[in-house]
Design a protein around this nucleic acid. Structure first.
Length: 254
DNA sequence: ATGGCTACGATCCGTAGA
């Protein structure tokens, strides 16, 4: 099973990139973030034509998440139970016996801002939710845009980014709370190239300079980690005309 | 130099992303 996560930054704009990429990579399950469209505008027919079932939770302009799968998408749930949130950031489903939780974690804007406080509250709620899900699912993956670079090696210029949003100690601690539940960063199960990133700023030729951050992750339970054969970031779609600012991340399981 | 893109929904600029 090949599982991917991709922040497409507008599914409407990126649909051609997505369908081309699906045909090329043959991913079995894909977690999408930042659809930026309401459910009525979800391109269900186009994705079905590409061979994928979909569960989605969208909204106009901002946020929005979806799970695409070649197989059946069962037991769909949206949002974080018990956490009231206007933002559509979470959708979960069971595919091929694996519980897949697709997340678009808040950006946080700036350390100390209201949005930063919301981000930390949101992560705390996600942790409680995942702890419950883990009691029911031995094979579970949390995949998506976490908006946190876990370590300095996930940052192109750690000095310049020190203490900034996406990198701050409190955000890293919030992410560590998730891995402390027993979830493993699938990317780090394997040897990886130096300076591997999943997001590059549109400005300042960020991609060309590889001035990026690794903020998109696939976290897996120990049972799923045992089945994990590879994990990588696919930079190819980031090279296209009018790309998403994020690259897809992929984990393959036996 | 604290900006620089991009998407969106609204106009000819603001909000948000990261």
């Amino acid at each position: 099973m090949k599982l991917a996560a991709w922040n497409v930054n507008s599914l409407k704009v990126r649909l051609p990139h997505l369908t081309d990429w699906l045909a090329k990579t043959q991913a079995d399950v894909v977690c999408l973030q930042e659809l930026k469209l309401e459910d009525a505008k979800f391109p269900r027919a186009e994705l079905e034509a590409a061979g994928y079932h979909a569960a989605f939770s969208g909204q106009k302009t901002y946020n929005g998440v979806a799970i695409l799968a070649r197989g059946a998408v069962a037991d769909v749930s949206t949002g974080i139970p018990g956490f009231a949130d206007d933002h559509r950031r979470v959708i979960a489903a069971t595919v091929d016996g694996v519980r897949v939780v697709c997340v678009y974690c808040p950006n946080g804007q700036a350390v100390g801002s209201d949005k930063y406080a919301y981000k930390l509250r949101w992560f705390a709620a996600l942790k409680v939710y995942l702890a419950t899900e883990l009691q029911n699912h031995a094979e579970l993956a949390v995949a998506g845009d976490f908006n946190v670079a876990p370590e300095d090696r996930d940052v192109h210029d750690p000095k310049a980014w020190e203490g900034q949003v996406l990198v701050s100690d409190a955000e890293r601690a919030a992410l560590r709370e998730l891995t402390d539940l027993g979830l493993k960063d699938s990317f780090r199960l394997f040897e990886q190239p130096e300076k591997s990133f999943s997001w590059w700023d549109y400005r300042m030729m960020g991609f060309r300079r590889n001035a990026g951050l690794r903020i998109d992750h696939i976290l897996v339970t120990p049972a799923l980690a045992q089945r994990c054969k590879s994990s990588l970031i696919d930079k190819e779609p980031r090279k296209l005309e009018r790309p998403s600012d994020h690259a897809p991340v992929i984990a393959e399981f036996s």
